[in-house]
Amino acid sequence: MEHDTHPAVRNKTFISVWAILVALTMASVGASSVHAGTASLLVPLLIATVKASLVLWFFMHLKYERALFKVMLLFPLGTLAVIMGLTFVDTWFR
């Protein structure tokens, strides 16, 4: 049977990632209480993207996977970015 080449991820790594995720969640709550127009929209979404990347990279083991998995993920994300981009070009400039 084929196995992962890397050893099991240490518990300490996962617990640290979890602590950072909780801290970022609190930071996004704090940031949203400051009413600063567009920034109060963008900052929580940027924080969410950092959190999502941490989940993908550590919890979903992407860090430890071969390049194939990392490249594969770029396809749905790229597709989504293109669809979002083109739709907004239409929404803004119609």
Binding site: V29, S32, S40, P44, L45, I47, A48, V55, F59
Partner: peptide
Amino acid sequence: LENACLFWHLVDLIWIYLFPLFYLVT
């Protein structure tokens, strides 16, 4: 187990975006 957990992390991932969009961005 590994693949079930991958699915579970994706559910978490989606909520990471739902939370700011519905509760935070005011």
